[in-house]
C-alpha cells in the first residue's frame, strides 16, 4: 500500500513514445520488390524488344512450328511417364520405412541437383558404354529398331530424367497429406494393399496427380542442357523450343529468339495458372 501511495518518481514513470512500423514494411517490401521488379522488367524487355509482326513471322517459320509441335508432344510424353513412375514411388516413400529408404530418397533428388549438362553427358555415356562388347544404343537400334540417341526419344528421356524427380517430390507430399488410416481400415474390410491403394489412396490424390503432371510438364519445357548433349539440336528433328532459342541466337536471329522466348513464357504462365486454380498448395 505504501508503494502505491508514494509520489510517482519521475525516473520510474512510463515513457510514452510513439513508434512506427513503416521502416519494417519499407525494408521488407523494398527487398522483396527488387526481385519482383527484376522479373517484371525481364518480361517487359522481351515484350518491348519484339513486335507483333516479328512474333508472327517467327511463328510462321516451319522449323519453329516443328519445334513447337515436338515440344508439346515430348513434354506431354515426359509428364505422363513421370506421373506413372512418381505415383508408385511417391507412395512407397510416403508410406513405408524400408531398408535403404534414405538411399532411394537421396537418389531421387540427384537429377534435381546435377548440372544439366552432366545429366545429358551421363545419358549419352550410359547408352554408348560398351559392356563386354554389348552396347545399349546399338542393341536398341539394331535389334529393337528403336534408336534413341540424337532422335526424338532422347528428347523425351532427357526431359523425363529431371521432370520425374520433381513429380516424385510432389506425389510424396501428396500422399504424406493423405491419412493412411483410411487405407488401414479398407484393408480390414477386405482390401489387399493394392486394392487399398487403388480404391482409397488414389482417388484422394487426384489434385496432387494433376499438380505433379503440370510441374513435370513445366520442367520438361525448360529443359535444355541434357537435350543438347543427348538429343542434339537438329532442326526439324530434335529441336524443341528451348533449343530453338539457342539456335536462333547462334545464327544472330535475335528477334526470332525473343519471340520464341515469349511463347515459352506464355506456356509457363498457363501452367502456373493451372496450379493456382487447382489450389493444391504444392506450387510453392
Amino acid at each position: 500500500m505504501r508503494l502505491m501511495s508514494e509520489p510517482v518518481n519521475a525516473s520510474s514513470s512510463p515513457t510514452f513514445r510513439r513508434r512506427s512500423d513503416t521502416p519494417f514494411f519499407l525494408v521488407m517490401g523494398g527487398i522483396s520488390a527488387c526481385f519482383i521488379i527484376l522479373i517484371v522488367l525481364l518480361l517487359a524487355a522481351d515484350v518491348v524488344f519484339t513486335s507483333p509482326s516479328d512474333f508472327i513471322d517467327a511463328l510462321r517459320k516451319p522449323e519453329i512450328q516443328a519445334a513447337f509441335r515436338l515440344t508439346i508432344l515430348s513434354c506431354s510424353a515426359a509428364a505422363v511417364l513421370s506421373l506413372w513412375v512418381a505415383t508408385p514411388l511417391g507412395y512407397l516413400l510416403s508410406r513405408y520405412r524400408f531398408p535403404g529408404r534414405w538411399l532411394v530418397d537421396t537418389l531421387v533428388d540427384i537429377p534435381i541437383v546435377l548440372p544439366p549438362l552432366v545429366l545429358g553427358l551421363s545419358l549419352l555415356i550410359l547408352f554408348h558404354l560398351p559392356i563386354f562388347g554389348w552396347e545399349l544404343e546399338a542393341w536398341l537400334r539394331d535389334s529393337v529398331g528403336f534408336p534413341v540417341t540424337y532422335q526424338w526419344p532422347a528428347v523425351v528421356l532427357a526431359q523425363f530424367s529431371v521432370a520425374c524427380a520433381f513429380a516424385v517430390r510432389t506425389m510424396r507430399v501428396t500422399f504424406d497429406q493423405i491419412d493412411p488410416r483410411a487405407e488401414d481400415v479398407a484393408r480390414t474390410l477386405g482390401c489387399t494393399r493394392g486394392q487399398a491403394f487403388m480404391q482409397i489412396a488414389l482417388p484422394q490424390a487426384w489434385r496432387g496427380m494433376i499438380a505433379a503432371t503440370t510441374i513435370a510438364w513445366a520442367r520438361a519445357l525448360g529443359e535444355f542442357g541434357p537435350i543438347l548433349v543427348f538429343a542434339g539440336a537438329t532442326r526439324m528433328r530434335t529441336e524443341v523450343l528451348s533449343t530453338t532459342v539457342f539456335l536462333e541466337l547462334s545464327i544472330g536471329q535475335l528477334n526470332a529468339a525473343v519471340a520464341v522466348s515469349l511463347l515459352m513464357v506464355a506456356m509457363a504462365v498457363v501452367v502456373l495458372l493451372i496450379l493456382r486454380v487447382l489450389g493444391t498448395g504444392l506450387n510453392a
Binding site: 491419412d179 488410416r181 483410411a182 488401414d184 481400415v185 479398407a186 484393408r187 480390414t188 474390410l189 477386405g190 482390401c191 489387399t192 486394392q195 482409397i200 482417388p203 484422394q204
Partner: peptide
C-alpha cells in the same frame, strides 16, 4: 493372415471414413 482375410469388422477411434 492379411487383415482383409480375417473377416473382422473394425471401428477405429478416429473412424477413418473414406473422404471420396
Amino acid at each position: 493372415w492379411l487383415p482383409g482375410d480375417r473377416q473382422i469388422g473394425y471401428v477405429p477411434q478416429d473412424l477413418a471414413l473414406f473422404p471420396t
